[in-house]
Design a protein around this nucleic acid. Structure first.
Lengths: 226, 226
DNA sequence: CGGCGGCTTGAAAGGCATCAACATAAGTGG
DNA sequence: CCACTTATGTTGATGCCTTTCAAGCCGCCG
C-alpha cells in the first residue's frame, strides 16, 4: 500500500466532494492511498480512525464464519464511501480487500466530525448518503437466483454507469464472490448469466457486460417473468 | 390514530433519550401517537417530515411488487427509530403498519437537524445508531432456512430482551411476515420452528418463545450444525 | 357461535447446491 | 516470451431442500 499524488480531476463526481471543498477551506489536505489487487485495506477489528472514498477501483468486505467459509458482505465502487459501518463499534467489522488496483482518499473521522458540526450542508449530504444505504441491497432476500442476479446487475449498472448513454461495464468482482454476496453457488451464478445471455437480455464475455434489454431485466428482477 | 398523554417512565431506555432531554432544554415537547393494530402510520411516498421512536409495540414496513406480492422490508421494535430511510428521497419509501397497539414519539426532522447541529453528543449518538443499522440483518443472505430463522430469532431476542436474565419473549410478527422478510414460505417457517422446538433449542407456543439453548441456536445460525 | 385469518402437516414438484470433470484465463518464473 | 501453475468459469448429473398445492386445525374477533 502506497500513497499517490493528488489528482483532483475525478473529484467532481465524488459523493463527498463537499468534504474536500470544506477541507481545503480549513487548510487540510486529503491523503490518497494506492491499494494493489487482493491487498487488504483494513483487517477485521482494526481500530476505526478513517473513512475512505473510492476514487478508482473497487473494494469488497468479507468475513469468515466458524466453518471457515468466506462471506462477502459489501461492495464499494468508485465515488462511494467505505467505513461508516465501523463507527458503531469503533473498529472495522470486516476485512476490506481491493478487487483491482484501487485508489482511495483517506478521511480522518475526527476531521469528518468537525466538518459535520461546522458545515450544515455537509451534514445534510452525509445523512442523505447514509439514508440511501439503509434501503440498498434490497434484493438479497429476493427468492429466485434469477431475481437476485438481475437486481444485482441493475444495481451495479446504476452505480457504475455515470455517463448516461453507456450501457456496458466491466464486472469488478468474481462469480465466486457474487455468489457469496447473494447467497448462491458459483455454478448457479454462471448458469444464470448464461441464460440471461442466451435470452438476449445481456451480453457477457470476459466480465464485460452489455445491457441489451434493461427493461426485461427489470421485469426479471421483479419476478414478473419466467 | 390518536394522541397520547406523555408518560416518560419508559424513556430511559429509548435510543434517542438524549433527543428528548435536549428538546426539553430548548423548550420543545415531543408528541406521542397511538396506532391501533394493522393501522398505517405512513404510506409509501408520503412526504417525509418526522422520525418516530417506538415507545411500545412494533412496526413493519412493506412494499408490493408488480405481481401484487407483498414484501416485508423492515421491522421496528421498542426503543428503535423509524424514518431514517425516508431522508434520502424526502418521502417514506414503504408503508409502515403497526403490528400491535403501538405508541410512537413523533420527532420533527427539522427540529432533529437543529439539535444535531447544536449538540455534538447527539450527533455522535445518531451516527452510532445509523452505523449499527448498516450491518444489521446480515442473515438475509444466509443460505438455509434454518440458518436464517435461527439468526432472526437471535436478532429479535437481542433487541427485545433488555432485562438480562429473561430468555423469553412474544413474537411480534406473523409467520407469513417472517417468511416474507426472510425470503421463505410460511410453511417453511412453521416447519423450522417445529424442528427447533422438537430439538429442545427453543420452546414455542402461541408466539411465546423461550430460548432453551441459545448456544446451540447460535451454532445453527452460523451453519455449524445440521 | 360462526367465520376468517393464521398455523400445521403431508405429498409432490422444482430449483438450487453439490460433486466431478473439463475449459479457459490469469499469474509466475525461467 | 513461453511453459507451467493456479485461479476462475463452464457444463452435466444427482440429490436435497424449499416451494407449492391441498387439506385440516386452531384461535380470535365480531
Amino acid at each position: 500500500m502506497s500513497y499517490a499524488e493528488n489528482d483532483k480531476s475525478q473529484c467532481i463526481q465524488c459523493s463527498l466532494a463537499t468534504f474536500c471543498a470544506y477541507s481545503e477551506k480549513h487548510g487540510i489536505e486529503t491523503k490518497r492511498r494506492v491499494i494493489k489487487p487482493k491487498e487488504t485495506l483494513q483487517f477485521a477489528h482494526d481500530k476505526f480512525t478513517n473513512l475512505y472514498v473510492i476514487e478508482s477501483g473497487a473494494l469488497k468486505t468479507h468475513e469468515t464464519d466458524l466453518m471457515g467459509n468466506e462471506f462477502i458482505r459489501g461492495l464499494y465502487l468508485k465515488h462511494e464511501v467505505y467505513g461508516y459501518e465501523a463507527i458503531y463499534k469503533g473498529q472495522y467489522p470486516f476485512s476490506s480487500d481491493a478487487l483491482t488496483k484501487t485508489i482511495v482518499c483517506e478521511i480522518s473521522y475526527q476531521h469528518f466530525l468537525t466538518l459535520l458540526h461546522s458545515e450544515p450542508a455537509f451534514l445534510g449530504r452525509v445523512l442523505y448518503l447514509l439514508s440511501q444505504q439503509l434501503t440498498a441491497r434490497y434484493y438479497l432476500n429476493r427468492l429466485s437466483a434469477q431475481q437476485k442476479l438481475s437486481a444485482f446487475i441493475l444495481d451495479l449498472s446504476a452505480r457504475l454507469l455515470t455517463k448516461e448513454p453507456h450501457l456496458d461495464f466491466l464486472l469488478p468482482i468474481s462469480y465466486r464472490d457474487i455468489g457469496s454476496y447473494l447467497g448462491l453457488a458459483t455454478e448457479t451464478v454462471s448458469r444464470v448469466f448464461s441464460k440471461l445471455s442466451k435470452n438476449n437480455i445481456i451480453s457477457i464475455q470476459n466480465k464485460h457486460i452489455y445491457l441489451l434489454d434493461s427493461h426485461r431485466l427489470r421485469l426479471l428482477a421483479e419476478g414478473a417473468m419466467p
